[in-house]
Simulated scan of single mutants.
Amino acid sequence: MIKSKNLKTIVFFIGLSIAMSAYLALMGKSSNRATAVAMHDFTLNALSNWHHIADTLNIPLSNTKPDMLHPVVRKGFSALDLVIYGHEIVEPEYQKYYQELSMPQMIGQLFIPNDENGKLRYMVGGVQLLSIQAGKEDAAFFIDVPTQVINEASLLYDSIPISGGRDGSGVVRYDRLDDGRYVMGFFINQTNVDNRVAKYDG
Rank of each mutant, 00 (worst) to 15 (best):
S131A: 10
L82I: 02
M68L: 10
V73R: 00
A139P: 01
V11T: 15
D67C: 05
T147L: 10
G118K: 02
N192A: 14
V127R: 02
T43G: 03
V183C: 01
L82F: 14
E100F: 08
F77Q: 10
P104G: 09
I160R: 10
K5T: 13
T9D: 11
A198T: 11
H87M: 01
G168R: 05
M68S: 12
T191M: 09
M39G: 04
N63R: 03
K3C: 07
L129F: 01
I107F: 11
D41N: 15
L130W: 01
S131W: 00
G185F: 01
K119Y: 07
M1V: 14
V11P: 01
V172Q: 01
K119R: 13
Q105R: 15
N114Y: 12
R181A: 12
S31Q: 11
P92A: 11
M20W: 12
N151A: 02
G118P: 04
L177W: 01
T147M: 08
E152C: 03
N114H: 11
N189E: 15
L24W: 08
D179V: 00
A19S: 11
S159T: 07
G126Q: 04
G170L: 09
K65W: 00
S78G: 09
V73K: 02
E91Y: 05
V11R: 10
A79V: 13
V124T: 08
L120S: 10
M68D: 14
